[in-house]
Measured scan of single mutants.
Amino acid sequence: ENVVSAPMPGKVLRVLVRVGDRVRVGQGLLVLEAMKMENEIPSPRDGVVKRILVKEGEIVDTGQPLIELG
């Protein structure tokens, strides 16, 4: 699984990683606000951040690609 998608609609509050960062399974990639709750979106696997597909403040839909892992 190379693309991390939004599990719910919401607003991207914070991106916690940068392109080139090594991440571990379960590590927070970004914080999504949904229904006034902050939800940290975890990495599904170990890898390297290849691309960040959203910006802070952006509104996303369920299933929208957020981050690509390499």
Rank of each mutant, 00 (worst) to 15 (best):
G63M: 05
V3N: 14
N2Y: 03
R18G: 12
V54P: 05
M35I: 03
I52Q: 05
R24T: 10
K50N: 13
V60R: 05
E1F: 00
V19S: 13
I52W: 07
S5H: 09
V17E: 11
N2L: 07
M37C: 01
A6D: 09
G20M: 05
P7V: 13
P42V: 13
Q27E: 13
M8G: 07
V49N: 07
V19P: 04
E40I: 09
V3A: 13
G28Q: 08
I59C: 01
I67N: 09
V4H: 04
G28A: 13
V15M: 10
V31H: 10
K50S: 14
G47T: 14
R51N: 14
R24N: 07
S5Y: 03
R24C: 01
E68P: 00
A34M: 06
G63E: 11
G26Q: 08
G70N: 10
L69R: 01
R45C: 01
M35H: 11
I67Y: 10
T62H: 14
R24H: 02
Q27W: 02
V48E: 14
S5C: 01
N39C: 01
E40V: 09
Q27S: 10
I59K: 09
K36P: 08
G70C: 01
L69P: 04
E40K: 03
N39K: 12
P7D: 09
V49T: 05
I41L: 05
R22G: 02
D21N: 02
G28P: 11
Q64T: 10
G28F: 05
A34V: 12
G63N: 10
L32S: 10
G26D: 12
A6Q: 11
D61C: 01
V54T: 08
T62R: 03
E56I: 03
K50P: 13
G57W: 06
G26M: 09
K55M: 04
K36N: 08
Q64S: 07
L13V: 06
G57M: 09
V25K: 09
E33R: 12
G10K: 06
V4N: 14
R45I: 15
R18M: 12
L66N: 04
D46K: 02
V54S: 07
N2G: 15
V15P: 03
V17K: 04
V60D: 00
G70R: 03
K55N: 12
P9Y: 09
E56V: 05
E40R: 02
V49S: 06
R22T: 14
L53G: 15
D21R: 02
K55I: 08
K50A: 15
V48D: 15
L69Q: 09
V54M: 08
I52H: 08
A34G: 07
V3C: 01
M35S: 14
E56Q: 05
L13R: 05
V19L: 07
K36R: 13
L32D: 00
V12D: 00
R14D: 06
R45S: 15
G70Y: 12
Q64L: 11
E40M: 10
E56D: 12
K11G: 09
V31Y: 03
V23S: 10
V17R: 03
R51G: 15
E40W: 04
E33W: 06
V48T: 03
P44H: 15
D61F: 08
D21M: 01
M8D: 10
I41M: 11
V17N: 11
L13T: 13
E1D: 13
G57F: 03
L53M: 09
P7H: 09
P42R: 14
T62A: 06
V31G: 05
E1N: 00
R22F: 04
V23A: 05
V31W: 09
G10D: 13
M37Y: 12
E33V: 10
E40H: 06
